[in-house]
Design a protein around this nucleic acid. Sequence first.
DNA 1: CTAGGGTTAG
Length: 669
Amino acid sequence: MCPVSFYATYSTVVAPSCSFPCSSSKTSITIPTTVSTKSISAKDVWTRTPRSPFSNTQQQQRRTRTQQQQHQPTYLDRTVNMNELLTSIGQTQNVQQLHAVMSPYNGTNLSIRFMVSLLSREPDWQRALALLDWMNEKARYSPSVSAYNVVLRNVLRAKQWLFAHGLFDEMRQKGISPDKYTYSTLITHFGKHGLFDSSFFWLQQMERDNVSGDLVLYSNLIELSRKLCDYSKAISIFNTLKASANIVPDLIAYNTMISVFGKAKHFREARLLLQEMRDNGVNPNTVSYSTLLAIYVDNQKFVEALSLFSEMNETECVLDLTTCNIMIDVYGQLHMIKEADCFFWGMRKMGIEPNVVSYNTILRVYGEAELYGEAVHLFSLMQRKGVPQNVVTYNTMISIYGKSLEHEKATNLIQEMQSRGVQPNAITYSTIISIWEKAGKLDRAAMLFHKLRSSGVKIDDVLYQTMIVAYQKAGLVAHAKRLLHELKQPDNVSRETAITVLARAGKVDEAMWVFRQAFDAGEVKDISVFGCMIDVFSRNRKYAHVVEVFEKMREFGHFPDSNVIALVLNAFGKLRKFEKADALYKQMYEKGCVFPDEVHFQMLSLYGARMDFTRVESLFEKIDSHPNINKKELYFVVANIYERADRFNDASRIMNRLNHKAIRSHDNA
DNA sequence: CTAGGGTTAG
């Protein structure tokens, strides 16, 4: 079909005056929270624009242009100025005009490569969709998977979730197989906006399609797990990534993993990554070091932090703002006020302008050192210097006034922040409630809490618990109990919050009751809720409950962290379900999870408790070959297992082996 | 054509 006959076909039809969005079925729809993927079919959201005619004048113009170009060679890529074409497309107001602009290239004049490039540069998602329409209808070749991918990215950037699903369905219908780019784009965008259900849905689709990953895809999956705080899963994915021969992690992937290992409290592994990076030709940068520094600080490992900082200074990595902020924090937490002060006031000389985080940190350091005058001075200095004060600044300052027993000034700050457009948050409220409680103004605290509950402010677990503790401290036990009781039918707090508060208050049966309901309703998503429940049940020796929560956690797709593994192995042991313990340990091991030594030791003890000494020996040999394990402890654990089973010969055999090992390593040294 | 990292307050 040549272009001329195309015009002839439609010349009698009148053009509808339709502007973007291209057709009524393509109205923009944004979904704020979760997208139920199952209920959407392509037809609901993705009805292709019916072919529409041009107005007579447009037609005339197009015809002239088309006739001129009829003698051009088949592919026009080199003669077409893409920027000009993009500009023309950008001026179109509806799909007809856009098709008109594209009409000189009806047929096969523009290559698919050219079109993919064009699509990737078209910023408007609706025009990008219209271009796909044009390709499907007029270009006489189907858009490639790449073409769909770039349009998909465009649609996702505009948060058009339903259209993204529709576009995916369209690909399927046209027999175009989604590739790793498709899935990468989908998983990332949905994950980035907290639509984890959808993200998981695409991950499952991808696995079903047997699409294997590349660095980008694995990085996206790691990011997704990280956002869900599922660090075990992130580590498992990282190990999968490294196991595929053709993928080498890059700087950012390594930096991400330093953070992941740190959050999972595998400090040794986090530290070792620095060396592994160098071995793989990826030099650690400032971010690598500051990530690890922050991890040490979070876990109060200040000696490690200081030694890492001096190691960093011996490399080429330059100090930057974030690292300075972390170091002010380090010195502050070490009560080295002078050093923190020097660091803060010396930053400018190093050419680094302190930002609001620097100010907030040193403000807290002053407060903790009871240097209230300095704190107040710095606070007003910020205002004079025009350093923006954020909610953290105010919360810090409120807490300082609380410490210096100036609760009226603390209260006034809440007014002040609001008048300056800084909205108080849950931390502000829990801080002021504690301050008022200490000042004997519990009625005020109770009134505020009541107001918050009826006003729809987000109340989290700490805030709720602060009010309960305030009642308890004031001796109003009945009120504290009432607040706890109300969590069984929570109205203005999430059920996840309710579960956490109940569990931490030791109300295990109530917590389990709410948990079961919430889980069935699909409301339990936060991995920390599972962890909290497992923790509490384990402490209360409710081992069947531990297992139940764990199984639900796995059902949801979460991986257990090392703490959860340890508690669940213990629960299986107590319930005499040794095979289940064995299976869990092996499965997590195969998935590449990193266990702390204690988990290995616990598995050894479980085998020992069952008198399964064959497995004790084989696991012992396996662990003994790990380079990073505490050998001495391992040998003691195994010897102890044999002792408890009255197998003293075996126990002494193990201890002898340890002694030989010690002598050998001594000789080597 | 696609992606990703570090800091402050209860």
